[in-house]
């Protein structure tokens, strides 16, 4: 029997649901870290902030968090399109534009995090 499936479904699994939650926890941990830094350095001076981001491990954690953010955003925004756009062609277009937006953000984030 052939099951008719839309080409742009959620892949019918637990994976995306779980990814959304795990990436949320990663982002929360990062945000707690940044808040602790800001409180410890009393608002975070320009010098202290620059000094912090001179550390490779801070850049690595930031890049990992950006990846988590983009993956999280993909699951969430795709859910929105799936809920409100019924037309398959329009939905496919929305998904494609969303992916382009996120991939462009990823490329830009590498420049921001690792640039001089």
């Amino acid at each position: 029997m052939v099951i008719k499936r839309p080409v742009i479904g959620a892949h019918y699994g637990l994976k995306d649901w779980l990814v959304q939650r795990l990436t949320a926890v990663v982002m929360l941990a990062y945000v707690v870290g940044v808040i602790v830094f800001l409180l410890a350095s009393r608002g975070g001076s320009y010098e202290a902030w620059q000094h912090l981001f001179a550390c490779s491990w801070v850049r690595v954690l930031t890049q990992v968090t950006v990846l988590a953010l983009l993956w999280h955003a993909w699951v969430g925004v795709r859910d929105i399109w799936m809920d409100y756009i019924q037309h398959t062609g329009l939905k496919l277009a929305a998904h494609t534009l969303t992916i382009l937006w996120l991939v462009a953000s990823l490329v830009y984030s590498v420049k921001v995090v690792w640039g001089a």
Partner: peptide, 29 residues
């Protein structure tokens, strides 16, 4: 939660731009 998520999605590049702003050299800062 959904509306704020959509707004944050749209704001991602601008948040990255802000991070770049805080990390740039003194005059560009």
């Amino acid at each position: 939660h959904r509306a704020s998520g959509a707004l944050l999605f749209a704001a991602v590049p601008f948040m990255l731009y802000a991070l770049q702003g805080t990390l740039s050299s003194a005059d560009r800062f």
